[in-house]
């Protein structure tokens, strides 16, 4: 079973990288890129035998405790 955890900055938190990337996109001609926010994707391979619910619960805990910085970031979990 695999899980994906998407970690994104909370809305309103400044993203200096996203800002610089957006500006660069604009200078090379991509004027349609109005805003860029950078996040992280974690792919977690899980041990066999977990139920879907248990997997979701565990990965959510992983995200809360380690993968995301709750001070500044939100996350979503997908398990399949």
């Amino acid at each position: 079973m695999k899980a994906k955890v998407y970690v994104t900055l909370k809305s309103g938190i400044l993203d200096p990288q996203g800002k610089a990337v957006q500006h660069s996109l604009e200078t090379i001609g991509y004027n349609a890129a109005m805003d860029v926010r950078q996040g992280k994707l974690f792919e977690v391979t899980l041990a066999d035998g977990l139920s879907l619910d248990e997997a979701k619960k565990q990965v959510t805990e992983m995200a809360e405790k380690l993968l995301a910085n709750p001070v500044m970031e939100n996350f979503t979990v997908e398990v399949e």
């Binding site: 938190i13 400044l14 200096p16 800002k19 709750p70 001070v71």
Partner: peptide
Amino acid sequence: KRPTVQVGDPFT
């Protein structure tokens, strides 16, 4: 009280 955290942008 975390959401008030300021993020630094040393490049700027």
